[in-house]
Design a protein around this nucleic acid. Sequence first.
DNA 1: GTAGTTAGACAACTTGGTTGGCTAATATCT
DNA 2: AGATATTAGCCAACCAAGTTGTCTAACTAC
Lengths: 159, 159
Amino acid sequence: MSRSGADLALLLLGGFRSLVDNATDELAQRGYQDVRPVHDFAMRAIAAGADDATRLGRHLSVSKQAAAKTIAVLHERGYVTRDTDPLDGRRKRLQVTALGFEVLHQGEEIFDELRDRWERRIGSAELERLEKHLATLVGASPIRFDTPGWMTRDLGEPS
Amino acid sequence: MSRSGADLALLLLGGFRSLVDNATDELAQRGYQDVRPVHDFAMRAIAAGADDATRLGRHLSVSKQAAAKTIAVLHERGYVTRDTDPLDGRRKRLQVTALGFEVLHQGEEIFDELRDRWERRIGSAELERLEKHLATLVGASPIRFDTPGWMTRDLGEPS
DNA sequence: GTAGTTAGACAACTTGGTTGGCTAATATCT
DNA sequence: AGATATTAGCCAACCAAGTTGTCTAACTAC
């Protein structure tokens, strides 16, 4: 039927939102009411080695000040620690706490469960095909998280 | 291979961003430097009948005040007119101007061209299949445009 | 004709981002 | 060693887009 290009864009956005909104919601229901997807992504980056504000900012394609704000929130809520680097007095070395890893783990689980749900609806082969094509099309272009405001908004109530 | 659910979300986001960033970029190059995707969506809604602030807000799942702000911008830049409704003195009836339609038309063209480019890469049948599945999965869930900050921002560097 | 509803304006505030200027610590160069 | 750069993080000012809440004017209904 050859849809329009704009519709295609909307479908992609819709798919993403559907997953993320569901995940955030589910995470809240499991007791992590104050976590936003952007926190999850940030923690993942920290755990993967972007362990100071500057590097985290670079990793998320965001200014170091913005990264620092996110870090402040994560720190405040006990998801990361910030100790001065013994080798470099300027740096504050970030580390994901046990609680942080707990959230990360749950988040992963939830996303996988959501994917499974999709798999059940269109079939495993089809979903993989879809992913394969998307991967081809999107390629290795880095994904920016600069201002996805709605990723950071509360769905339910904060703590 | 069975990717993770989180990866799937990222793929969808990546696809969307890729299309939208390219479109915004191309639109700017064609001389419409001050148009953001959100403006395009808003004009489309207005043209489709959401011709006052309240209805536009409802259509975009946003408060009427937020819609009014967007309208103010569109008006200022000559993309829509706001005349008092002769039948209802409270309403300001919105109308997309010729210039507005010009942008809309170009936007459509660009999105279709981008879709064509994708089609050339994975094949027409495959792209349609992808769209079909996405449509199934996303369903009729309304897509919200509440705070896609990056949709409204100038893009500094290429993706 | 009076009471209720609705559209839009205005204002205060929130959130997340940006830039720019600053200090202190580290690196580099002569 | 000492002077000079660079770098990490912090702070403050500002911006953009949203929200809620209040107000007025115009329409609607009884």
